[in-house]
Design a protein around this nucleic acid. Structure first.
Lengths: 241, 241
DNA sequence: CCGACCAATTTGGTCTGACCAATTGAACAC
DNA sequence: GTGTTCAATTGGTCAGACCAAATTGGTCGG
């Protein structure tokens, strides 16, 4: 649903990819709006809307005299998705950073959730944990229950800043990961420890323990996923070489 | 510098504020581009660019038939700045969430920095820590040294995702906080413990300890700042009532 | 009274062509 | 070389037009 395809969006996508591929050097001037309009067979208005989006992305800065490419480190999160889509398989380093970041935020959510949960919310978390335990055998079917748990923790923590970042990150990352059809292999022993720690943290309302449990889970997930991507990359290279 | 004032930007700012003030109910249709153009005495093109920016902000979704207001929880980080600027004094709850989030990311950076730092980087961090200790007496002059330390840790951690989020958060938050001229009062005993833990973490390359030290620092900072804002708000209310 | 259907209107997406002010860049004078 | 000047370029804005999709409101059948 949603993403209605428009000329301006297509232009923005194309230019964004070109910039992320570093086909324009940082600081370099982009072609003029009129040139771009000619190149893409579009009107200046469409080009301007595209450039306006790229400026919002922090990829370029538009001044009278010309639009200049900005260093990628000063861009906004919105570019992470396109950055990961530059090739069929995302950069494992970037994926690792992504999961680290996601872990940090989820950990904070877990801590705050356990801290401020009321009795009813505590019970609900415990019941969600039971579901997690029931599916501990199969990572595949456990996934949605993890999402439920983390989502519910986020609801309790009720941190707008984290939620907004999480939205962006999810939009940029999760959907694209799904497409890869990753089947992470989690160490069962460690997973059991995660679930046990989570259980204890809920029982004793120990927020630090809850945080470290979530942290450990994401750590496992990260290591597994990154390894998977790296091995796929190695296979590709072997086939190509 | 930079922010050249353009009509489209002004329109975007005005509409953004109106939406954040909930002057349009969520799901409600915005006035048509033609209406807005008439209202702001501007051309449709300018209005379209403004709306395009708001769509990038996740505040509205534009479809043929009309632009509709989206729930704020599905917006992007870019709205946090405007959200905090709705009134002279920002919502303390939002500030608290901000600092929590910032803490979570800085903590992760600290952990990774201590983990992967080479000998030279370790030395540099120690020297930065010496500077911190020298200014431990005065929170005011210590601030820039903290920024240096955290910035250097971020450089070592070299996590693009965290950096981009940090950029956004800083752009939305830090500058506006500076204007308030806050003078946080940190508990000296706790501050000393933070510095000591940091020192030990560097000596033993204990990433967890480094993380908890940074966490504790931000915790102190957050409590102090939030209390400050709350007391100011109380003063304002007393004067008004 | 209600729901399904259809046409008129409205709305966003795009294009063309035009004007202004600021910037740029090259020719020019020193 | 260096500083100045001036014309070409560039972004910002406007007006008016067309199309396709969505909305709206009225009509018709139940």
């Amino acid at each position: 649903m949603s993403t209605t395809s428009t000329i301006s969006r297509e232009i923005a996508d194309t230019l964004r990819t070109e910039i992320l591929r570093q086909q324009y050097r940082c600081g370099e001037r982009l072609p003029s709006e009129r040139d771009l309009a000619a190149r893409y067979n579009a009107s200046r208005g469409a080009v301007r809307e595209a450039l306006s989006q790229l400026e919002q992305n922090g990829l370029i800065s538009i001044h009278p005299g010309g639009a200049r490419v900005q260093p990628i480190e000063s861009a906004s999160i919105a570019i992470l998705g396109p950055l990961m889509n530059l090739s069929a398989l995302p950069d494992p380093e970037l994926v690792s950073q992504f999961l680290r970041t996601f872990a940090a935020l989820a950990t904070d959510n877990a801590k705050e959730a356990v801290e401020k949960a009321n009795a009813e919310q505590l019970i609900r978390m415990k019941s969600l944990l039971v579901l997690l335990n029931q599916h501990a055998g199969d990572v595949e079917t456990m996934q949605p229950h993890w999402i439920n748990m983390l989502e519910y923790m986020a609801t309790i923590a009720d941190n707008l800043v984290v939620r907004l970042i999480g939205n962006d990150l999810k939009a940029q990352f999760v959907d694209q990961m799904m497409n890869l059809g990753l089947k992470p292999q989690l160490n069962k022993k460690n997973l059991n420890q995660v679930l046990n720690n989570l259980k204890q943290s809920l029982a004793k309302r120990d927020s630090e323990l809850a945080g470290s449990a979530v942290q450990m889970y994401f750590n496992e997930l990260r290591i597994s996923i990154v390894a998977d991507i790296k091995s796929r990359l190695a296979n590709l290279q072997k086939r190509a070489g």
